[in-house]
Simulated scan of single mutants.
Amino acid sequence: MRYALGVEYDGSDFHGWQRLAPHGEAGVATVQATLEEALSTVAAHPVQVVCAGRTDAGVHAECQVVHFDSEAVRTPRSWSLGTTTRLPPSVCVRWCQPVAADFNARFSARARRYRYRILNRAVRPALGRQQLSWERLPLDADAMHRAAQALLGEHDFNAFRTVHCQAPHAVRDLQRLSISREGEQVVVEVQANAFLHHMVRNLVGSLLLVGRGEKPEDWMAELLAGRDRTLAGPTAPADGLVFLGPLYPAACGLPAELNL
């Protein structure tokens, strides 16, 4: 039987999503290794998972979707609650759903969504600091939003990926990129068919220069056309980034919040 899980986690204490040691061997703490260990205990056999989108060290997830296979007879409730009781407080399984044998958490997804929150005030945060980036200089969120609209559509995003990115090409379809102010916070919401390594954080890092007035609004379009990472802004910190989750065709039978 193949199952899909919705996993929520605080990435602060993890070295990213991807397991860094061979399955079953001890290594640095990653979300994948931690989840697989808990699932394997519930299943009473080794379990390996495939996720919708790997997250970097310090990045959080509201609803990471994974799939795994098991012959163990367990109810969805037993999978979700039994696994959660064996996870640290920073990780939980929100739901479990049986899925078709050809469902793939990564390849069945049609889009991914992220949110980046920036506390924009003179004093650093104390409360909620694990899910907030901080910028002390005033930001013009409207200017950031206008500049970002030049990036929408299918483009080569070489200017916004890390040199360590292993993707075979940098063409992505950026479907939504909005920036708005909510009191002291500037909120960036982005959706694309897929993302490059550090793409969201690199986009935010460049948009911050526009928000501070250090670069004009049309600079983002110039960066996109130039395809040169060395000309773009710095990579924004991981703290403020949350993977909201992937989107799938309704036929996959997952919770409505994940329907495209």
Score class of each variant (00 low, 15 high):
163 V>M: 13
197 H>G: 10
173 D>S: 11
177 L>Y: 13
169 H>Q: 14
189 E>M: 00
194 A>K: 13
189 E>S: 05
174 L>C: 06
178 S>K: 03
171 V>K: 06
171 V>F: 13
156 D>S: 02
198 H>C: 14
198 H>K: 05
173 D>W: 13
178 S>C: 05
191 Q>T: 07
195 F>A: 14
146 R>V: 09
198 H>I: 04
217 E>K: 10
211 G>H: 01
153 G>F: 10
227 R>T: 14
226 G>T: 04
202 N>Q: 15
208 L>C: 06
225 A>H: 15
197 H>W: 15
228 D>L: 08
197 H>N: 15
158 N>W: 11
218 D>Y: 05
176 R>C: 02
215 K>Y: 08
152 L>G: 00
182 E>N: 09
148 A>T: 12
220 M>E: 14
152 L>E: 03
211 G>C: 06
167 A>Q: 09
207 L>F: 03
188 V>S: 03
195 F>G: 11
198 H>G: 12
179 I>M: 03
205 G>I: 02
191 Q>E: 15
218 D>L: 10
169 H>L: 08
205 G>Y: 00
217 E>F: 00
189 E>A: 00
228 D>P: 07
163 V>G: 15
167 A>L: 09
192 A>K: 01
214 E>M: 07
217 E>I: 05
199 M>W: 06
184 E>F: 05
162 T>Q: 02
233 G>W: 05
198 H>T: 05
221 A>K: 04
208 L>V: 15
158 N>V: 02
164 H>C: 02
180 S>C: 09
221 A>I: 03
191 Q>I: 08
214 E>G: 01
208 L>M: 12
214 E>K: 04
171 V>P: 03
178 S>H: 01
234 P>S: 01
